[in-house]
Amino acid sequence: MKLAFYGSSLLSSYWNGAATYYRGVLRALAGHGYDITFYEPDAFDRQQHRDIDPPPYAKVVVYPATADGLASVLAEAPRADIVVKASGVGVFDRELIEGVVRHARPDALKLFWDVDAAATLDEMRGAPDHPVLRALPDLDMVLTYGGGPPVVDAYTGFGAAECVPVYNALDPDTHHPVGPDQRFACDLAFLGNRLPDREARVEEFFLRPAAMLADRKFLIGGNGWETKQMPANVRHRGHVYTAEHNAFNCTPSAVLNVARDSMANIGFSPATRVFEAAGAAACLITDAWEGIEQFLIPDEEVLVARDGQDVADHLAQLTPDRARAIGQAALRRVLAEHTYELRGRQVHALFRQHLARERKAA
């Protein structure tokens, strides 16, 4: 079965936090026999910062970020049995969702795959002409990578025929324990791009504890932080490539996850970093959000912080033995319940169920 996927980038994680999610899910689907083509624009310098070469599980078509480039890839949509438009491509998002609806075959399964559902839903509430809202009557399904019941209820309330969360997960072949790397040595590390709806939470959960614990070493990785004023004990690493993530997670005493505002508010939205860190057996400290226990058990598999003071307290009380025990427990949990192999089975079953309903209706 041919699957056409229009997304931000499969090849590069540069200003593209969804990259490892796409890779994990699509690799798993390829294992179920799907013939996948991923269409990504040449935009935002992503092609100059590739993490991987084109993978064996998907054909990757990089198109110019121009009207002609857009037209050339939309013209290929009728060849697919399943056509997916992901959120947050960054260029031609409106034209892509409209083009998927217009160009896909009538018998094709048409999906919107939302990797930032809370933000998309906020936009839809304030814009009656939002392209996703207008496309919902013509879409067979909405998949999201988080959000739980609040997102499902919101999307079905807007008219989605079906909405199913397909959560982030672990690809154990990509993210796994490795030896320490002194480039990433510190007491607490955080990895994430500087974004307007995350910055205040990073200030609270990362920079405030750093200021409180002047004798401890802190490391921040990701794009955009080079102009941010920080305490003297915070070191900025810049963009961290996927191949460096294991060492980044395994070397520090603990690793911090900080959700974006929208995802923290809605809950049930573990970031990719949560599973990457757990897969590397890192001791993870996360900011508090509803639904965390669905993925990791607080105080056993993860440390949960309500604010920066909690982060500082966790670090002050953390011993190497306890950090190791938490990391190992997290690794066992995600290997058992949160791998992309399991997410692939979930999506494959959804596709089969939909096609079975279509055949029955016909």
Results as ranks from 00 to 15, higher is better:
D53N: 10
F38R: 01
P54H: 06
D42N: 15
I97F: 12
T37I: 08
L70I: 03
Q48N: 05
G146C: 13
D42A: 14
F38H: 01
Y57H: 15
L111D: 06
P137T: 04
G148Y: 07
V101Q: 07
W113R: 01
A80I: 07
R79L: 11
D138N: 07
G146F: 14
S87M: 09
H103R: 14
M124S: 03
L70V: 10
V60E: 08
R125E: 05
L70E: 04
W113E: 08
V83I: 10
L121H: 14
D81A: 15
D42C: 06
A58C: 12
A119R: 15
L111G: 08
I82Q: 12
R94W: 00
R79M: 08
D51C: 05
I52L: 00
V83P: 10
Y145N: 12
D51W: 03
V142E: 08
V89M: 15
W113D: 04
A117V: 01
V115F: 09
A77Y: 00
Y39V: 03
D114S: 11
K59W: 00
Y39E: 00
A77K: 01
G148I: 08
A104K: 07
D129S: 14
P41M: 09
V62I: 13
P78W: 12
V83M: 13
E95I: 04
H103V: 00
T37M: 06
D51A: 08
D53C: 11
F44E: 03
D81E: 15
A43N: 05
G99D: 07
G90L: 04
V62L: 09
L109R: 01
R46K: 11
L96S: 02
